[in-house]
């Protein structure tokens, strides 16, 4: 009786651990295959185009509006203390340290992570992955590594763009709309924003890129059950990536700052 209960309780836990282990293995494999010749540069560039270039619009829109709303919200708070000048600082710090990397990663996860899981999933169920193996080509190298590398490189790139447009958005709302003193706005940013804030944010983004791509590739790569399975993998990839990104964000933040 007791045994049955513990077993029932343990089974999902073991399942999670196993999944984490498998994801870890996929991560290690992709590191291993990253450094094996030949380097599939054209594959990497294609993925960089897909993950990076094609995400620009969504990242710019997200970043700008986040900066704008940050300015709006913090303005109402700071006005009570007569410290409107700190709006710029708030926008700049929140964007570079937190919202730039996290929101960019979540948006790109929704766009590219789901696509990764769906692509690899349908390659799995239509035996394209088997076809690669039969050709004596390692599917991790051909399918996973380019996506992981491209995400690793493109997430910081997109984040730095999000940071920039976010601060511009905050500037537009704060200075042009709410009439905060322009000099105070900019100087307070310059004064309180450290390069470390920006760099740590970008490091975060790179880590999120790895997390997102490894999880999404894993989910796609081990898809079972036809078209339905592909749909399931896609959903799971986005949910798991997003949750892991948020949890990791907390850990990284507490380590970095």
């Amino acid at each position: 009786m007791f045994d049955a209960v513990t077993k029932k309780g343990l089974t999902p836990l073991l399942g999670i651990l196993k999944e984490l282990g498998n994801i870890g293995i996929m991560f290690l494999q992709s590191i291993y295959w990253t450094f094996r010749r030949p380097f599939k540069l054209n594959y990497i560039f294609k993925q960089m185009e897909f993950i990076g270039v094609n995400s620009i619009s969504v990242v710019i829109i997200t970043g700008t509006f986040t900066g704008m709303v940050l300015a709006l919200q913090s303005y109402y708070g700071f006005r009570k203390f007569g410290a409107e000048g700190l709006v710029g600082t708030t926008v700049a710090l929140s964007m570079t340290r937190e919202l730039g990397p996290v929101l960019t990663s979540l948006m790109v996860t929704g766009r590219a992570g789901s696509a990764m899981a769906a692509e690899l999933g349908s390659m799995r169920v239509t035996e394209q992955i088997d076809a690669l193996i039969v050709m004596a080509l390692n599917p991790i190298k051909y399918l996973v590594v380019p996506r992981v590398i491209a995400s690793f490189l493109m997430f910081p790139v997109l984040t730095s763009i999000a940071n920039f447009v976010g601060i511009i958005g905050g500037y537009l709302v704060g200075v042009k709309l709410l009439g905060i003193n322009e000099g105070a706005f900019i100087n307070k940013i310059i004064k309180y924003l450290d390069p470390e804030d920006i760099y740590n944010g970008l490091i975060k983004a790179a880590v999120f890129g790895i997390i997102m791509s490894v999880i999404s590739c894993y989910k796609g790569f081990y898809t079972r059950g036809g078209a339905e399975g592909v749909g399931r993998s896609t959903t799971e990839a986005v949910v798991m990536s997003s949750v892991t990104i948020l949890v990791t964000d907390y850990v990284l933040t507490s380590l970095m700052f």
Binding site: I161, N163, F164, I190, L193, D194, P195, I198, L202
Partner: peptide
Amino acid sequence: ILFYMSFRIGR
């Protein structure tokens, strides 16, 4: 962008 921002904030 990165260079511009780093430059402006001083390092």
